[in-house]
Design a protein around this nucleic acid. Sequence first.
DNA 1: ACCTGAACACCGTTCAAGT
DNA 2: ACCTGAACACCGTTCAAGT
Lengths: 198, 198
Amino acid sequence: MHDSRNRPYHHGDLRRALIQTALDMLHEDRHWQFTLREVARRAGVSHAAPYKHFPDKAALLSELAMLGFDQLRDALLAKKPRKPGGVREELLAIMRAYIRFGADHPGLYKLMYSTEAGGAVPLSERALGAYSVLLDALTRGQKSGELRKRSLRGQAAACWAEVHGIAMLLIDGWFLPEQIGTHGIDNALSSVLEGLEA
Amino acid sequence: MHDSRNRPYHHGDLRRALIQTALDMLHEDRHWQFTLREVARRAGVSHAAPYKHFPDKAALLSELAMLGFDQLRDALLAKKPRKPGGVREELLAIMRAYIRFGADHPGLYKLMYSTEAGGAVPLSERALGAYSVLLDALTRGQKSGELRKRSLRGQAAACWAEVHGIAMLLIDGWFLPEQIGTHGIDNALSSVLEGLEA
DNA sequence: ACCTGAACACCGTTCAAGT
DNA sequence: ACCTGAACACCGTTCAAGT
């Protein structure tokens, strides 16, 4: 009962197709409350087919979250100024890129941080990839004397919480972009950075 | 088919009982993914009974979120230092109380900020109650000259995002309390405040 | 006025059976 | 090896019927 022209019984790469379909839905809906059956439907397979590639729905969500952290790391690395410049500029660029990633991928971003979704082990290897971009910049800042030589973890926590907070508030509509704007966000980021500077 | 001794057919105050039961479950489970049927079960009524008091599940969640913001406002007001003191001490106390509220009521806190849950209008009247505690302190700080005379909204955004970020990261297990600790959190808060000071 | 029980259209998940 | 279709135990929601 399948269309033998362009839908063979064996899908070929259903695992990848399911992931891509889910990513599309994550982007359309701005949240991760989609059903596994709907993903299967859009991928053109029966609702039982996904279970041959993922043990359960949580496993698919977890996979998506890990891919999200990879994308986030890449987004942060891409925004690193190529010219030497000050560490402050670099940190600002990283934090802006972080917030933009959240605003651009609301569903995926919320999934990445939701324990209900995947039971992803906090600070798993994949999340550390993105985190270490921030940590590296702070380390350089302390070495060059631009930042106070305080606990790296504390400084990282301050930056991370600020960008995570801004991203979440933006995504959930608490910061109206036309009210707070890029200007207001930059002010908030500057406040945090000034507190770290020597 | 009901127990006529202590469970009359007419519950009496089922609406309040449903809210209290849901609050209990929110506290037990650390998230708001409970079922309405389970709330009804624990309240000792049929799964259809809640619909006589709330149009749908979202309405109950919305009610819980609004009560949460009231509680948050009370928690912030309770922590205001009674003696004059500096605005910095006052802001620190407010921010610490905010984070503690989130850590102490993880399920309720996440519900309050989740758009998926209630479709609660962002910055509704009830949320403004808590927000204005922060805004008032910042206003006093600008008037007394302790804080730079910049955009109030920007300063509030910086503080709010920081405490919201810390609360969310704590709740979801990204900040291990034994690793970051009260010390690390205070450092993060100080970084933000120093950026606001004149 | 307030609550129940059956019913409907969904889920996530399992499993024998098909190709 | 990979997918389907029926089945099970759940949901949220509705509605006629009971008290």
